[in-house]
Design a binder for these strands. Structure first.
Length: 157
DNA sequence: GCCAACGTTGGC
DNA sequence: GCCAACGTTGGC
């Protein structure tokens, strides 16, 4: 039986790393996630899964592109690095706490599908990212929501 | 820059 | 194991 492909949404501030950066670098290691729920979602990711690259704290905030999960999650090296902002003194090589995930560039959307649009369209009312107070940087997305966002990006706003 | 939401920490 | 204090996220 074929493995089910899953879909995700991953937030990042474009000032730090944007869809254009991913396009230029082709792939990246998504690290620095320090939230257990987000980490657990990373551990569920499988090669071939697709993700919506969401620009947060941006003007405008919204979905900017698509990436592909390239490999299963691995220990996040920054947790061992005392000089890193993401250093975690509780983590050891033998017992890592945090994971990172390799993400490849797939495409930049023709235009950003903004958070405002997603909130105004009742089709997306069950999406985690539009729900009030959701700060989680990684959330699962249904295939229907994923496809609908790509379709919206092909239409003028 | 404000602040609501909410996850984490640590004293008890 | 409770919960107050604190820190962070992220839209506005």
């Amino acid at each position: 039986m074929a493995t089910q492909r899953n879909y995700w949404l991953m937030k990042n501030e474009p000032e730090t790393f944007s869809i254009d950066d991913l396009k230029r670098e082709k792939k990246t290691i998504w690290d620095g996630i320090r939230n257990y729920q987000a980490r657990n979602y990373m551990r569920e990711m499988r090669p071939g899964d697709l993700m919506l690259f969401y620009h947060s704290s941006a003007d405008p905030s919204g979905v900017a592109g698509v990436g592909k999960i390239l490999a299963k999650s691995m220990p996040d090296e920054s947790q061992f690095n005392k000089k890193s902002d993401y250093y975690d003194p509780k983590a050891t090589k033998a017992k890592p706490i945090w994971d990172a995930i390799a993400v490849g560039f797939v495409k930049k959307l023709p235009r950003i599908v903004t958070l405002t649009e997603l909130k105004e369209d009742t089709r997306f009312k069950d999406m985690k990212v539009v729900q009030k107070g959701n700060r989680l940087s990684i959330t699962p997305v249904s295939e229907a929501h994923f496809q609908a966002i790509l379709e919206l990006s092909r239409q003028a706003q």
